[in-house]
């Protein structure tokens, strides 16, 4: 019996399947989020943080990317571990 597919996916493609969809999601999320909120309004009053807008947008984008990749990683992880489990059960 051929093994279920995801187990055989090369590492490079696994990395892409985590980083790439989350990258697109991060672009959409940043666009929607930052059109609603000005990063300058998000810094609490009691904190004296001097941060340039470009830095704020960049960090925001990277955070969205990180969050979305965690989700993508979860999907990949469960898919692969489920396939392993099913493959083992069938053998």
């Amino acid at each position: 019996m051929p093994s279920l597919i995801p187990d055989g996916i090369p590492r490079s493609q696994q990395a892409i399947s985590v980083l790439w969809p989350s990258f697109i999601v991060a672009i959409i999320a940043s666009g929607v989020f930052f059109s609603a909120f000005d990063p300058r309004d998000l810094i609490p009053f009691n904190l004296d943080i001097d941060i340039s807008p470009v830095a704020a947008y960049s960090i925001g984008f990277l955070l969205f990317w990180l969050l979305a990749s965690l989700s993508s990683f979860g999907t990949l992880y469960f898919t692969i571990s489920n396939c392993r489990f099913l493959n083992k059960q069938r053998d």
Binding site: P2, S3, I5, D7, G8, I9, P10, R11, S12, Q13
Partner: peptide, 17 residues
């Protein structure tokens, strides 16, 4: 770049690039 981990007995589902 990518290496296939499939054993010879199995069909290669992801071809090496």
């Amino acid at each position: 770049m990518a290496t296939s981990e499939a054993t010879p007995a199995e069909p290669v589902l992801y071809e090496a690039h």
